[in-house]
Amino acid sequence: MSTTDTSALAVQSATSATGRRFSPLASAKFKQNLRWTNWAPAVITFVIAAALWQITAIANPYVIPTIDQVWVSLIKDADTYWANMLVTGLEVLVGASSGIIAGFILAIIMAEFQVMERAVMPLVVVVMVTPIVAIAPALVVAFGFGMTPKFIVTALVVFFPMLVNSLAGLRDVDDRALDVMKTLHASRWEIFRDLRFTGSMPYVFAGLRIALPLAIVGAAVAEFVAAGQQAGLGSLVTIAAAQANLPVTWASIALLCFMGVVLISLLALVRKRVLWWSDGAAVGR
């Protein structure tokens, strides 16, 4: 009697869970995203902002350029912009990835060995409160006008949010899952491999979300300081601004902005693939 009761209930709950698949939910969500109530408000805001910009630009021709002036500049000198964007892009790519990897690895070391946190964290904080704008010229003096100081500045800017977020993520494990692991006499490596590493990913992605836009800031600031020798959108901004060339200045700014948007969108795509399990209701917590 008891057996039939339980198995009947088990079957019932099993089928009810089968009906609750991921894909219909996901596609429903996608459709919802396409609904005009979702995208229209943002579009309206952008249109209003553009209109205000245009009116201000026409009224103050020596303060900001009109949108069409910027557009014309972008088309006319597309090759130059593209080349400069590649330079900045390379700086962001190399600088950010080294900063991300270094931040995550140091976070792992600190999470596993508390002594390391006590030993190294104060130094990290000291470096991080030093204004990056002040470090950049010093690095140029040390490493010249090449790419090296730009890589370093970008990596530095990215490093801190990655370290702090990854560390928080590696520490915030499900205590009860940890209890289960400990009762099995899991080694530290096994706990890291099966629990901490993947469990830290929501925090890691939160860190990336802060770090990636900062990487562009880092690259641009480094270029401001070392403008002249090497190209890059940041250099372009300083040079054009010094010549009061408004369209080029703002076209470069717009491209920096565009790079940021592309990075964030890519991140959101990767996040969806990696963190599918952490969205929606928290599981097992």
């Binding site: 499900d174 009860r176 899952a177 209890d179 289960v180 629990l195 993947t198 952490s278 599981v283 097992g284």
Partner: peptide, 11 residues
Amino acid sequence: LVPQSPALLPW
């Protein structure tokens, strides 16, 4: 050990 919450790995 069966803890108070299932504590399964969601991934």
